[in-house]
Computed example of a mutant assay.
Amino acid sequence: MNTESQNFRKSAELLGAICGGLLISLPAIPHALAQQSTPNLNPSPSIFSESPYNRSQTPVTPGPSAMPPRPVPRGEGQMSPVPPGPSVRPPRPIPGDRTQQPSPGGVSSDQPQLLQPRQTPSATIALTNGTVNIKLENDTAANVTFQVIGDTAPRSLRGKSNVILQGLKAPVTVTFEREDRGQLLVTPQASSEPGSLEVRFNEATNAAQGRSAMRIERNGSVFLN
């Protein structure tokens, strides 16, 4: 055999040895990669055999860099008001604005007073068992229509005549009107008899003197309207 044939044979044997080694090592490469990519499921198997945490142990003190918890505001949605900064100025009044500021008592100074002084009684009588007798004296020439509210229907009292209404339970209201649409001057006066009231009708000289109703309270006070 010549020298060239021997060299070719040696090269072929070397190439076959290299290819055979590669074929043997290829199956081991995926296995090694799988071992490197798969994490240890339990790197510390002893933790399952350790005793549970004892709550009586001293808690770990947070380091100086730990931030304390923020306080929770009292009440849901209730936060402390933020005071205005030094640059915030109160609103200036607008010239010509007639809006009145409320007074310290909660009532505006320009509102009328709601509670008026109580009217002074025109007369006072002593009731008998809570009842009163009323004598109506018509000193005018015109007929007067009167009615005890809740007790009687409207009735007519002729001029220069009188009528007595007995046993009316207080409080009681009596209305009256001249049939000729004139004004009535009404004068109530306590009678000498206990529990009795005399009421005189006269012609009024002006509308300001005219009256059309009388009310007797439980305490015997008589008011005209």
Rank of each mutant, 00 (worst) to 15 (best):
F48Q: 11
P45L: 04
G75W: 04
P43V: 00
P69C: 04
S51Y: 05
I47V: 14
P71S: 13
Y53M: 04
L41W: 09
S56Y: 00
N42P: 08
E50D: 12
P68M: 08
G85R: 07
R74L: 15
L41Y: 10
S87F: 09
N54F: 01
R74V: 14
P69F: 14
P64W: 12
E76S: 13
S51P: 11
S51A: 15
S56C: 02
V82L: 09
T38N: 09
S37W: 14
P64T: 15
Q78G: 03
M79R: 10
P81E: 01
P45W: 05
G77A: 02
T38P: 08
P45A: 02
P69W: 08
Y53C: 10
P83D: 08
F48P: 04
R74C: 14
G77K: 11
G75P: 00
Q35K: 15
S44C: 07
G75V: 06
I47D: 07
S51K: 06
P73I: 05
P64G: 13
P52F: 08
Q57Y: 02
G85F: 02
T38S: 01
R55A: 11
S56L: 08
G75Y: 08
E76M: 03
P62T: 00
S80H: 04
G63N: 10
G75C: 05
V82T: 13
Q36K: 09
Y53L: 11
M79C: 14
M79L: 15
E76A: 12
A66D: 01
P43T: 10
Q35A: 15
G85L: 04
P59G: 07
P71M: 06
E50S: 13
R74I: 15
P39T: 01
P68V: 00
I47C: 03
P81Q: 02
T61C: 00
S49N: 12
P45K: 05
M79I: 13
R55Y: 08
V60G: 06
S46K: 07
P62H: 01
N54Y: 07
V72K: 01
V72R: 03
L41R: 10
Q35Y: 13
Y53T: 03
P62W: 03
T38C: 06
